[in-house]
Design a protein around this nucleic acid. Structure first.
Lengths: 248, 248
DNA sequence: TCCGGCGCTAATGTATACAGTCTGAATTCA
DNA sequence: TGAATTCAGACTGTATACATTAGCGCCGGA
């Protein structure tokens, strides 16, 4: 073993999990397609035991589905599933925002959030948003949402949001980048950024109801945009990617 | 192998998972206590491989926590964690109720819910509620909440509710039964049952906002009762049990 | 030609052997 | 006497061998 000397620090299980997740979200395996252990062994380069562990974790994560007769397949999501997931996440994040506002946060805690906001501002200011900028936006947006969840100071809620976010919003694939060329993209991003700003303001002023409402609205906007996007391009393959951009 | 001929139908992994979960929620292992694989092997009677799978699943489920240096320990929950979990579940169930109301359900779909309601009615009618009746109530209440989640027709949401419900509400242990003797128990059950009735009515009449609001209120009542109960008896060991009764 | 049964192959589920590492204690030196 | 270092034990992480089962194709009969 130890064929690859680099990055031997992390466990084989984690490496397998990352590799398989990447394979799934990048579209290397079609939804509904079976994923055999030996196949996974070849892909990841580790033994069957860590591969199995990774598969179990990915199942719990929601990316895989157990086949009754044994083994796993890539989980397939309907359009409705993804729309629901967006609203679900919005609801959870609304609760997180409410908790943050109710519990009260110091301005010191809000600092990272505001930094994030400013960085995003710098990105969306560009007129046609470059693919690189859009890529950065995706990362920053994820960071903002993660920070917001943390602000709730509720481990159970943070955990749940993590679970809810993991799935249909996973892939920063090529499809996503392609979306950045759309003329509406910048508009969506500007509105989403406005939502971000409002929620920070609401939390700062302890307006819990407003904080919760805006995050729900944020999700509703995302869902609406996804629905619109689906009118134009009906490739189901694009769903995860579209969900990502729509989730703003 | 096959030392126990009975129940060879289910896989070793599932058996191990059930046995270990029972061990944890029944209090056989204290929160924070480490659970070694060999120990688990002795308890479950299966080999290390299925035991490991079960441990990973239980970690993803939230009952266990990974120790950085390796292995797992029983997860410890603070009072705040449990209160948050109750509110979290209420929020998710509120969304489920809203989905059900928005999407519209046939009276045929509501039939099982109403049956459940009637059965609970029969139980709470008794003046001092017997331990057996209370035990039945716990089961029926869980059934009601599961049915409600199903009514949302949203697999992602159902899954999430399942996850949120699993944890601090797990153990139907002896402690729970002891609670049934409390004089306030019946009052709590009656109010909770009223909530149940209202949500079914709201869904039937497509009042989505009302359906959502009542489930949130339901959770808030539960949280308040738990807080009150904690004033009297401050044993942290009782938390899961108290959460269960308070979750009504 | 079609249907059914039988056998094979391959993949999963399980068990166990092996290696690396962390913990804890005991011993030794300052 | 205290602290540090080393050694031993155990436990996890990993790899692989074994068994069982499900799926699938082929062959034979109607």
């Amino acid at each position: 073993m130890a064929e690859r000397e680099a990055e031997r620090s992390v466990s084989q299980t984690v490496r397998a999990q990352l590799a398989l997740r990447e394979l799934i979200v990048s579209g290397g395996l079609r939804p509904g397609e079976r994923i055999s252990e030996l196949q996974a062994v070849e892909v990841t380069g580790v033994s069957r035991t860590p591969v199995r562990m990774a598969l179990v974790r990915l199942e719990e994560e929601g990316l895989l589905e157990a086949i009754p007769s044994g083994g796993f397949m890539v989980k397939a999501f309907s359009e409705r599933d993804i729309l629901d997931s967006i609203e679900l996440r919005g609801t959870l994040e609304g609760l997180a925002a409410r908790f943050a506002a109710e519990r009260g946060v110091s301005s010191r805690d809000l600092e990272p959030l505001k930094e994030c906001l400013n960085e995003i501002d710098g990105l969306v200011r560009q007129e046609p948003i470059s693919m690189e900028a859009f890529s950065s936006y995706v990362a920053l947006n994820a960071r903002f949402h993660a920070l917001l969840a943390e602000l709730s100071r509720s481990p159970p809620l943070i955990r749940q949001i993590d679970r809810a976010s993991a799935l249909p919003f996973a892939s920063p694939s090529g499809f996503v980048m392609a979306q950045s060329a759309l003329p509406e993209a910048r508009q969506i991003l500007l509105i989403a950024q406005d939502h971000h700003r409002v929620v920070v303001d609401a939390i700062e002023n302890r307006e819990s109801a407003r904080a919760e409402a805006i995050m729900r609205e944020h999700a509703r906007l995302a869902a609406r945009n996804l629905r619109l996007a689906l009118r134009n391009r009906t490739h189901l393959d694009l769903l995860p990617a579209l969900a990502l951009i729509s989730a703003g």
